[in-house]
């Protein structure tokens, strides 16, 4: 693999990332344009009194042509100026700053546990391929993989929080300082982990099984290289590339999961802010959060594609 090949791949991938970022911004902006009729009247919804309609028109500068508004809005984004909320008049940036802590904590905890749990289960299943442990891990991960977080979460709450009273059922009353109440974090993180762990461990298992059956692994064993070393220094690195990419794809899932889990356990994070804004049709807040989430996804996917490309230069990564 030449350096030039990597560089041109990275350049192409960066270009795609930039196009995706622009597309996210345009898509999010196009939303208000897509409103049928007068946007201010449509957004006022249940309370169509003239004062409120005028306030919305004022706040969103609806009297100006769309390209001026797009220009202003897009120019404000890099500086963290996302506009002002329609319902409270507070800046959208403040909403994002308020909700950021709990969501970041949930995501960081989940990722920190996801990697060891996913790799551990995958390696465990691959070591016992075809035997009871493998069949157990494979069936359970296949089954849990498909389950929506809210259904799993509600069942776990019923059993662990209500019947057995081991854990608090929600995070109500703990505010944003969740780290001081680790018991309230157990169920949310467990639910968030459920799907990504399953997909990651299945990929690691498949990669390890393939690698352990390969000629180079057999050759290493014939040379008397100890089993553990064959597994961890020869086979495992080859199972890494698909897993690294899957890790980035789970960003999408984590985002869906975070929104659901915050709603389920009443955690005041970005997901809750987003859902409240959607319910109140507070378009500037929805737009601001959508841009943050969208750009975050673009950047993380870009990073993962570059890492995966570095790990398997011969595999063609779409870009």
């Amino acid at each position: 693999m030449t350096v030039g090949g990597l560089r041109s791949f990275v350049a192409r991938r960066l270009l795609l990332g930039a196009a995706q970022t622009v597309a996210v911004v345009l898509l999010v902006f196009a939303l208000t344009e897509a409103l049928p009729g007068d946007a201010a009247v449509a957004l006022a919804g249940d309370q169509p009194d003239p004062a409120r309609i005028a306030a919305i028109r004022e706040a969103m500068h609806l009297d100006r042509p769309w390209y001026e508004r797009l220009g202003d809005w897009a120019a404000g984004l890099p500086q963290g100026d996302f506009g002002t909320s329609l319902t409270s008049g507070r800046p959208v940036g403040q909403y994002i700053a308020d909700g950021f802590g709990p969501t970041l904590l949930l995501a960081a905890l989940t990722l920190a546990l996801l990697v060891p749990a996913g790799f551990g289960l995958g390696v465990l299943a691959a070591r016992h391929e075809g035997r009871l442990v493998d069949r157990l891990v494979s069936s359970v991960t296949l089954a849990v993989y498909a389950v929506p977080e809210f259904a799993l979460g509600v069942l776990l709450v019923t059993v662990l929080a209500l019947k057995l009273a081991w854990l608090p059922p929600t995070a109500v009353g703990y505010g944003t300082d969740l780290l001081a109440h680790p018991a309230a974090l157990v169920l949310p993180v467990l639910v968030l982990l459920s799907r990504p762990v399953c997909s990651l461990s299945r990929l690691v298992r498949a990669g390890m099984v393939d690698a352990l059956a390969s000629p180079y692994a057999a050759h290493a064993r014939r040379y008397g290289v100890p089993g553990a070393r064959v597994r961890y220094t020869h086979a495992l690195p080859n199972a890494l590339a698909p897993a690294a990419q899957q890790l980035a794809r789970t960003v999408d899932w984590l985002l869906c999961g975070v929104i659901v889990v915050e709603a389920l356990f009443v955690i005041p994070g970005l997901g809750t802010v987003l859902l409240n804004a959607v319910a109140e049709r507070d378009v500037p807040v929805v737009q601001g959060l959508a841009v943050v989430f969208g750009v975050l996804t673009v950047v993380l996917n870009l990073g993962a594609d570059v890492v995966a490309h570095r790990l398997t230069p011969r595999a063609a990564v779409a870009a």
Binding site: T21, L31, T32, A34, V251, I259, L274, V283, V286
Partner: peptide, 14 residues
Amino acid sequence: AVPSLLLILLVASV
């Protein structure tokens, strides 16, 4: 690039 649930919520808000 757009997360699926995000797109659905975006449209649902309008």
